[in-house]
Simulated assay, not measured.
Amino acid sequence: MMRPWILSLLFAGCGALVAASVTVSGKPGTAVPLLLLFLLLAVLHSPLVFPRSVGAEEAQRRSAADGRPVVYWRPGCKYCLRLRFRLGRSARRLHWVDIWQDPAGAAAVREVNDGNETVPTVVLAGRPHVNPDPAWVLAQLGG
């Protein structure tokens, strides 16, 4: 599925175009940092920075078994990125559901957000929390 990668591909493509135009205009020393900046943005907005996503039903089953929260997210969401980076290594302890890859996950988010796909939506013990403070999520993990 290409949808999660569209933003990353746009950043990489725009970076290549900008770097090429700067190089052609006679400033190759400026082109390299610009290209690296765009590539960094491409990686940050890709699914690569998030732990492996599972389906909504699997995440709910795992959460019921181990009590860990389920995080519904999508690539390119700055609030999801903020949550992911503030959680650090603890992010692996949550169950992540990419709503762009899982229609059941998108439906679950719409159900608790008045029809909107507002992410991140963290579900803990059956209660949804929309865009929670990362410190709160860490406290729920006991770390």
Rank of each mutant, 00 (worst) to 15 (best):
M1P: 14
W5I: 09
W5M: 03
L10C: 06
F11A: 11
G13Q: 09
C14V: 15
L17W: 08
L17V: 08
A20H: 06
V22A: 04
T23V: 12
T23W: 13
V24H: 14
S25L: 14
S25W: 05
G26V: 03
K27V: 09
T30C: 13
A31I: 05
A31P: 06
P33W: 15
P33S: 13
F38T: 07
L40M: 07
A42G: 11
V43K: 02
L44R: 12
V49D: 02
S53N: 01
V54E: 07
V54Y: 13
G55P: 08
Q60G: 12
R61H: 11
R62M: 08
R62I: 01
A64R: 10
A65G: 05
A65R: 12
A65K: 06
R68A: 05
P69A: 11
V71H: 00
W73V: 00
P75F: 00
G76C: 10
K78G: 14
K78A: 15
Y79N: 08
L81A: 14
L83N: 06
F85R: 04
G88C: 06
G88F: 10
G88L: 03
R89Y: 07
S90D: 05
W96F: 00
W96S: 00
W96L: 01
D98M: 07
D98L: 02
D102W: 06
D102R: 12
P103N: 05
A108Y: 09
N113W: 03
N113D: 08
G115W: 11
G115R: 04
G115D: 09
T118S: 05
V119F: 00
P120Y: 04
L124K: 07
L124C: 03
A125M: 07
G126N: 07
V130A: 11
V130W: 04
N131K: 12
N131R: 13
P132V: 01
P132Q: 01
P134L: 01
A135H: 01
L138T: 13
L138V: 15
A139G: 05
Q140C: 13
L141Q: 07
L141A: 15
G143P: 15
